[in-house]
Design a protein around this nucleic acid. Sequence first.
DNA 1: GGGGAACTTTGTTCTATATCAAATCTATAA
DNA 2: TTATAGATTTGATATAGAACAAAGTTCCCC
Lengths: 206, 206
Amino acid sequence: MLPERLIFDHHSAKMKDNLIAHINKFVELDEAEIQQVCDSVNVVAVKKKQFILKADEIYRANYFITKGCLRLYFINRNGNEQITQFAIENWWITDYTSFETGKPSVYYLQAIEDSEVISISKKAYEELLLKVPKMERYFRILLQIVHTASMRRFEYFRDQTDEERYRHFVSLFPGFVQRIPQYMLASFLGFTPQFLSKIRGKKVKP
Amino acid sequence: MLPERLIFDHHSAKMKDNLIAHINKFVELDEAEIQQVCDSVNVVAVKKKQFILKADEIYRANYFITKGCLRLYFINRNGNEQITQFAIENWWITDYTSFETGKPSVYYLQAIEDSEVISISKKAYEELLLKVPKMERYFRILLQIVHTASMRRFEYFRDQTDEERYRHFVSLFPGFVQRIPQYMLASFLGFTPQFLSKIRGKKVKP
DNA sequence: GGGGAACTTTGTTCTATATCAAATCTATAA
DNA sequence: TTATAGATTTGATATAGAACAAAGTTCCCC
């Protein structure tokens, strides 16, 4: 029987393969570069409801999800959770404001399901970008994608009623909606869980 | 007296210096790289109210403002203008969705004041990124900044009332508010010009 | 597998902001 | 210089969704 450490290393290597596969969709890494990426990151398992970080803490890392689902939220002045982002497989997530400035965040980062996450520390990230310029390209491309996604999201918030935004979101991501409780979806879409329940109770016009 | 073309070239070179100065805040370009950047871009003058692009057109370039002010907006289903971004000196602006996909945009890009703009075509942008890897870094850093800005903006939309968001914006950018008509500020902040007028008419609580 | 907490549903009332309408005010172009 | 469209103000009315409240439901944890 293998010692615990080796089992973990084997598992860990498999997680890292997911990240490498994702990077290779955008840039072509050679063996040495793959090694440098793998040496820069760590694999972490988080249980459902476990927090990776909480408000008032500093986001010293960026997180890539290989399995599961996380949410990023803050508490508004009425004391309600406001989810600003979900992250599922093959997404990076962090509070970039805190990550960049080194100042405490207002955000909570919590697992919605048992999840596997790859983390890269701020320091390792900066060093990796200098050592492997292809990673500048990789993150530049990802950030362009993120930017277009948030522009799109903004459009929806400005051009649709809450009810329309709900129906639209469900039609776009029917599978994802199954994975999360309703109150989280309501929070993400910007209204109360009671209102979501009322929408669902309504018969859709034939 | 100099021929028209030379006068323009001289002016054009000065505009490009602004861009180079901006890039040099984030990465250090050598002479050859500066030349490559300058060869990749064009200088354009736009008069107040003139459109750089309109809805249904394709954003084939990214635009850097050296002087003046532009707005990016779309027409919502009620026929109202929804401004999603302003761009002033030293900001890049485009509809990245259209820029990346080559599909027609829903956005209008219009000068609010007489402005000077440097454009880089999609083709020149892609080539420049390959020829000058430092530009990957430059745009990666800029996109991180843009991303944090839109996260912040989202927070404000979720955590403040319209009136609070107005007062907050004015306190953050008093000079900018002077430069634009009220109805544009209302559109950017997500409410009607009538409502903005009513807010302004109110006495602030002492 | 039972009990309590976490969710969801349902009904009522309330409020911020939209919408509609019309009266000024203000720039710009002829 | 004035005519005219564009912009702002002001007031009356309407409405989407919040807040509050309380009854069901489901999910876990012991």
